[in-house]
Write a protein that binds this DNA or RNA. Structure first.
Lengths: 120, 120
DNA sequence: CTTATATATTTAAGTAAATTATATATATAA
DNA sequence: TTATATATATAATTTACTTAAATATATAAG
């Protein structure tokens, strides 16, 4: 993923979220969708995307079906029941995280003089 | 950082933000402040925190001063001019990123049938 | 007085997750 | 025929964490 080093832990969850919404998507499509939703500010790299998809597959969270489109094999990914469950959990965790992060970034308060535990 | 694998690329920016706001803080204080602001949902690990502080120092983004408090050395960190500049940039980049991420996570639209570039 | 908990910093080892780069292949546009 | 778009795969490298352990002092609790 490119366009900010911030993506780091979030790729798996982003993929789960998109697949939870679309039933089936192929790799390239996922990169285009993220680009679109982010107004080109986030570009997934294939070197990150495909290994992550294989990992999710190996964990039983998604399954693949291959179709021939325009004479080329296209691999579609869709969530298993387990994948759907995890998607919900991960999406809500990440949403919570963005809220906290946002709160930290917009906070303007100063810490109180740090009291020792036994002073409080 | 613990309490979510989502932190990954964000620690440096969080530190810069807190120091931009407080002129000087010490390592332990930073962990407590993040815990407080996140209602204990994010706990920085020292293994992540201190190496990041040293890296920021080696990059000229902050300087340290040591004070003796309660008979123990305490190392205070504060931003250099360059650190302050970078803090602004990074905080606004990360804010933008959280907005995009939040948009992706809450989006409920389906992609159009993917048009080929030459079809659009 | 001994133990547990809190305060405070440091650093090594291991792992996970990305980036970068490369390879392969077909289709359409210029 | 060259460039760009579509599409997947994977190796090598780098970065950034987690986990764990070491060190040291202070206060609280029993």
């Amino acid at each position: 993923m490119t366009g900010g080093e911030f993506i780091k832990g979030t790729l798996k969850t982003i993929i789960l979220k998109l697949l939870a919404q679309n039933k089936q998507m192929y790799g390239y499509e996922i990169t285009q969708r993220v680009a679109q939703l982010s107004k080109d500010e986030i570009k997934l790299t294939y070197g990150a995307l495909y290994p992550t998809l294989y990992k999710l597959e190996s964990e039983g969270l998604l399954i693949t079906t291959t179709e021939i489109v325009d004479n080329r094999a296209r691999k579609y990914y869709s969530l298993t029941a387990e994948g759907k469950k995890l998607a919900k959990v991960k999406v809500s965790e990440l949403q919570r995280f963005t809220e906290i992060l946002s709160a930290i970034l917009t906070d303007s308060s100063k810490p109180n003089v740090t009291l020792k535990a036994w002073e409080s």
